[in-house]
Design a protein around this nucleic acid. Structure first.
Lengths: 250, 250
DNA sequence: TCAATTTGTCTATTGATATAGACAACTATA
DNA sequence: TATAGTTGTCTATATCAATAGACAAATTGA
């Protein structure tokens, strides 16, 4: 029982990206856009090899990478099946918050505080927060998880004087929104967002449980109070194979 | 004279992405975020090789790829220099238009109509435009260029009945906004945008003048009239090494 | 039970990627 | 005009990526 289609477009040789990696990317993409639903069977290896014009062993390399990653499950004699679901659609808007945004798409989601520290503001953090360069800021390192899989990795910076103790609040509540509420901020808006994409580096691979060669979406944003006062500067990374960003009203 | 820094983080072996490709990506990223300005000298090859823990010849492979791509210029006995500028910041918002959005960052920009055709609407196009699947739609294939370099590649779909002749208008005016004005539409809004990233495929490489292994940002959007009537469904691709997306008020 | 289909494993070979070392060619400057 | 510092070219070797073919092992359905 074969369902779904795979893009027939060709792959690039001598590109610096191996053929098995390119094929793995195509399979991930097909799953992400819904061409293969959960538990669907991939076409047999020989068929995939023919479609892409490569050897069966090359296809097997791609599949085994995705098996290691937990996306596919191969069963001898039966076929290869899709384990993971469609890409999450992560909303970005003026007022979107982590867990409310993913409601309906996941059964469980939460933010883990990985680390916190006080440090002097770098150039871009100072600019974003409207502080002098070198002023003390608190950095919170967090990871977002949905249904047990990492879907985001973020660093957030806050002015240290104004938000002293926000690290403890974050550890307790597991929510940025709730932590800010303790400082009298019951509403905040996303002022600006800059978006880019790149290959995952070593830190991304570890933080987001990715395989080398994966792509991450990167957002750099500033959150402000309704009257325009900067509160938080953040840089977030999303695994492109698991998350897409849905821009809503800013 | 050495200016700028390169991320010291390590590179991944056996990742399916060759070391020279990873190093080329890092250099591109460093240029894109402004660590190396135009005409700045890269560190010498031996220094780069040491920093990344690879052989000098591997660094040379990365550099020669970027020289072929027109990003760097190598001069025997002198050094290797940066040709191209910072990444363009492409605004995305409710009312942003191509050329107005890039004003100030470029001296010249325009849209080229590559092809147009009438075709039956696919599932997602029909959904986006609120039409029946298979209804006739006009497809416009365009490329955005700024200072002579391709910065976007887009496909736009319009209802064929309502916008008959928009292909000719687009060819004449070189502007979506101007073309829509001929059909009595003097304002339109971006209703929804979904954002993702992937490796460039063969079509992207040709259309955007990229080297294999490059990353593209992909937006899928629907434009509507102020009263909510869908006008245009579009899919755009941006080369991540040359463009970042700046989200403004939607 | 048999045949067809599919994934798993093995050997062998070729081409691309990466390392290593040496030296030539060119530039800038002391 | 030396000399140090840089990119360019060459040879050699090792490892990874990809191809090719054969057959084993497991599943399914006739």
């Amino acid at each position: 029982m074969i369902v779904g289609r795979l893009a027939a477009d060709s792959i690039e040789r001598r590109s610096g990206v191996s053929l098995w990696r390119q094929i793995a990317d195509k399979i991930l993409h097909a799953i992400a856009i819904g061409d293969f639903t959960e538990n669907a069977a991939l076409p047999p290896e020989v068929a995939l090899a023919e479609r892409y014009g490569v050897n069966r062993h090359t296809v097997r390399s791609a599949i085994s990478a995705l098996v290691r990653e937990g996306v596919l499950r191969a069963e001898q004699g039966r076929g290869t099946f899709v384990l993971s679901r469609k890409r999450l659609s992560y909303p970005i808007g003026a007022r979107t918050r982590f867990s409310t945004g993913l409601q309906g798409q996941t059964t469980e989601r939460h933010i883990v505080l990985l680390a916190s520290s006080i440090e002097p503001a770098s150039q871009r953090v100072a600019e974003g927060l409207g502080l002098a360069r070198g002023a003390d800021v608190i950095r919170l390192e967090t990871r977002g998880e949905a249904d047990g899989r990492p879907v985001s990795r973020a660093a957030g910076w806050f002015e240290a004087r104004r938000f002293a103790g926000i690290d403890a609040a974050m550890a307790q509540t597991g929510s940025i929104t709730a932590s800010l509420a303790r400082f009298g901020i019951d509403d905040y808006l996303r002022q600006s967002t800059v978006l880019s994409a790149r290959h995952a580096d070593a830190a991304d691979l570890a933080d987001l449980d990715l395989l080398p060669g994966a792509i991450v979406l990167v957002t750099v944003a500033v959150n402000v109070t309704p009257d325009g006062q900067p509160i938080q500067f953040s840089e977030s990374r999303f695994p492109a194979e698991r998350v897409e960003l849905k821009l809503s009203a800013l």
